[in-house]
Design a protein around this nucleic acid. Structure first.
Length: 219
DNA sequence: ACATTAAGTGATT
DNA sequence: AATCACTTAATGT
């Protein structure tokens, strides 16, 4: 679904969500230049090597962001939610380079794409935009550091628990539809290892599981 | 009933 | 924590 410029529906929805973040004038500008797109679950909205022409702004749903190693193994970095934008993309935008991450919709999501050339103009025109961009950088940087921290300093068990909790938060549900193999690939581990840890978590009443399904017990 | 896919397990590195 | 080789269990056709 694409909203045309000045679509009143677009304005209402953006206003509803960013009323306290952006000044009304800026919301009008965003409506004018932004293009809203929706994505079904597991749809790729941006891939490694893609040219960055637009900056994404998550309006609804949740997006997971990956890097990839030389052999094509994925590693999840973080989830993007309402009002989030991707700092990696922000960086690419200003340098007009290519994406070094992959972004996949976790659930049905709506994302507003803003053309790169608007960004700099808004930076000087709107102080709310400037604050938003700087703040986004800050939070993404922190998320990234946290991701590195869990990968390097924490056990696989901790990583799985964090992953499950993040996913539950992103999908707004403690009932997750994931297989052990899915978890293994997103965390860049192996299915056998995940299965063993999941069994342990089940015994410790942290989760309950059926084939292809996991329920988080202690939130 | 059979094939396919998910999950469990022991042994080895 | 990863990999191999194998088993068992659940699910789709």
């Amino acid at each position: 679904m694409n909203f045309t410029p000045y679509d009143p529906q677009c304005y209402d929805r953006l206003f509803e969500r960013f009323e306290y973040v952006f000044e009304p004038e800026l919301i009008k500008e965003i409506c004018k230049y932004g293009r809203m797109k929706s994505f079904d679950p597991e749809t790729t909205l941006m891939d490694i090597g893609d040219d960055i022409t637009h900056m994404p702004l998550v309006v609804s749903g949740a997006i997971k962001v990956f890097t990839e190693d030389e052999e094509g193994h994925e590693l999840i970095l973080y989830f993007l939610e309402l009002g989030d934008t991707c700092a990696v993309t922000l960086n690419c935008c200003t340098r007009k380079s290519k994406s070094n991450v992959r972004a996949i919709a976790e659930v049905h999501s709506e994302v507003l794409f803003i053309p790169v050339d608007r960004l700099e103009e808004w930076m000087v025109r709107f102080k709310s935009w400037r604050a938003f961009v700087l703040d986004s950088y800050n939070t993404r940087m922190n998320e990234m550091l946290q991701a590195i921290d869990t990968i390097v300093f924490h056990s696989m068990e901790d990583r799985i628990v964090k992953y499950l909790k993040d996913k539950a938060w992103a999908t707004k549900s403690e009932h997750l539809n994931v297989s052990h193999a899915d978890i293994a690939s997103e965390l860049h581990s192996s299915r056998v290892v995940v299965s063993r840890i999941m069994k342990k978590l089940e015994l410790n009443k942290v989760i309950s599981q059926q084939r292809g399904k996991v329920t988080l017990l202690d939130l």
